[in-house]
């Protein structure tokens, strides 16, 4: 296995693990962590692909993704805290005020 392939597979693994956590974990914080994994998968790809690409676009893009991740985490935790105050839980499945009323 050469280096590029290895890095790509690692990226796929991270992305899919993130996806798996998003779909299976019940706790919103766990979901948030899954999302972080997906973002890291993208970062890994960008850095790896930047190895064979002129310029530093990949790394700079990764840098901005990290900034975006910080913002998302900050906003996410804030929203989560507010929801927790109302519901005393962070399990989205237990929020039952909004659903189809037929």
């Amino acid at each position: 296995m050469n280096k590029t392939d290895l890095l790509f597979y690692l990226g796929v693994f991270l992305f899919c693990s993130g996806l798996l956590m998003v779909f299976t974990k019940k706790n919103a914080i766990m979901i948030l962590m899954g999302i972080e994994l997906m973002l890291n998968a993208a970062n890994l790809n960008l850095v790896a692909f930047n190895q064979s690409t002129p310029g530093l676009d990949g790394q700079l893009f990764a840098l901005f993704i990290i900034i975006v991740a910080v913002c998302e985490a900050a906003v996410g935790i804030a929203i989560l805290l507010k929801a927790y105050r109302f519901y005393q839980t962070v399990v989205p499945d237990q929020f039952r005020d909004l659903h189809e009323k037929l």
């Binding site: 992305f15 973002l39 998302e72 929203i79």
Partner: peptide, 21 residues
């Protein structure tokens, strides 16, 4: 609105993460 906000956030960030990948 707290619930809606959280749901929107979770759906939205997952969609964004997929897009970023």
């Amino acid at each position: 609105s707290a619930e809606g906000s959280l749901k929107y956030f979770l759906f939205g960030t997952v969609a964004t993460a997929v897009m970023i990948y």
